[in-house]
Design a protein around this nucleic acid. Structure first.
Lengths: 220, 220
DNA sequence: ACGATTCTGTCACTCTCTGCCAGATAACGC
DNA sequence: GCGTTATCTGGCAGAGAGTGACAGAATCGT
């Protein structure tokens, strides 16, 4: 009875659950469409709610802020899976390699939904306030990675300099962000996995070129 | 006539200019004090304006948003000076060394105002929306650094892979942020200059430890 | 079918931020 | 000095995000 085209639909739960899930998704897709068409700032919550025939008050029962209709939910879920994967790496595996492995295995499932991610990113990049919110999400990710890495080091018996930990986590974020940006910039850039490998390897190898002249110091 | 304790006061400009500068500074310090006492979110623009005996409407003539009273102006000025310094590095100086030199010479003047920076940072760290705005500022810095580095590479005749450029700029931001965080965490951490040197050197040397076991890949 | 639970809409409200216009104040020419 | 002009300020009105409270509707357990 709960089959569709031979694909089993997930458990029907209750009528309430289904209705909730349906309006939540309706709000998200209506919001994305309106944001793409007329921009984030020029779309009011009233517009989104009206498109779903729902009161504005109800919108805020599903999403704490207007931004969260675009940024929330699945991002955090994936982040948690990544952190779990990082924590599960063998204790004697070096931190950077563990980070690299966790990120790579997480982003493999991104590969097939470039379209959707690109659409969402386009809205975010075009809206300063959304860029800010996204940055804040990433910062939370950084802090969590620092925590997990500190745990790993503690468990392995190494002292774990806090500066080193922050540099590791921050470098991981930078590698991820740079690779995703390149990946979304055009299909010619290659696969996300390949770009990620390049980014992580480049940072691992170090940033100092073999040789060069000494830099000048500040004037006065 | 415009001397005070033997120190020459800057040009008096006009009466209007002086009044403007005075109320702007008054708004900033009143805002900081109120933010520290009762938090950013629980301080209304009306509060700040009332503390300076000014209408709320006037507040927004000095600062486009409530956040900008804490984050604006001098941050951008210092950023521009840093970018100019980076652009002025010799063309054959490797990018990472140039970045390091520019950041180090910029932050030397921070060394003596730890108190003020720490106070401001405490408010920012305690307020998610301010953390987000700060992250957005830093992102703008990243983009500008990428631009300058691309210019340098173009001028030097090198191809300049965009991924490498982003990694360099991002790594610079990470080093700066990590060092400043450590510096503000406690006076025992040492001078900011020393912390910055450590951070830049550590990233330059690379993140891969000599050896270790291979990481595991993702399940399923 | 009937209470209990949960969801939704309406109303009222705070706060940020903007446009508009009238009045105050400083700058400039004479 | 005096009048003219540019600039600054305050008050008013309003849009939009977000929140609390309450009544009614839908759904759930039995």
């Amino acid at each position: 009875m709960w089959h569709n085209m031979g694909v089993t639909i997930e458990a029907p739960e209750s009528l309430r659950e289904r209705k909730k899930a349906r309006t939540q998704e309706a709000l998200q897709s209506a919001a994305l469409e309106l944001f793409q068409r007329q921009g984030f700032e020029h779309t009011t919550v009233e517009d989104i709610a009206a498109a779903c025939e729902v009161s504005p008050r109800t919108f805020f029962r599903y999403f704490p802020t207007k931004s969260d209709v675009l940024l929330g939910s699945d991002v955090e879920e994936r982040r948690d899976r990544m952190l779990a994967l990082l924590a599960a790496q063998p204790a004697n595996c070096p931190a950077w390699a563990a980070l690299r492995a966790a990120v790579l295995s997480l982003t493999q499932e991104y590969e097939h939904e470039r379209e959707r991610i690109a659409a969402r990113m386009a809205v975010i990049e075009a809206t300063p306030s959304l860029r800010a919110t996204k940055s804040e999400y990433q910062r939370g990710w950084d802090d969590a990675v620092v925590e997990v890495l500190a745990d790993r080091a503690r468990r392995a018996g190494a002292p774990a300099d806090p500066l080193t930990l922050r540099l590791l986590a921050g470098a991981g974020t930078v590698a991820l962000r740079a690779a995703v940006d390149m990946w979304l910039a055009g299909p010619k850039s290659g696969s996300l996995t390949q770009l990620l490998r390049e980014a992580f390897d480049e940072l691992a190898a170090g940033l100092e070129p073999p040789t060069g002249r000494r830099p000048v110091t500040a004037p006065r």
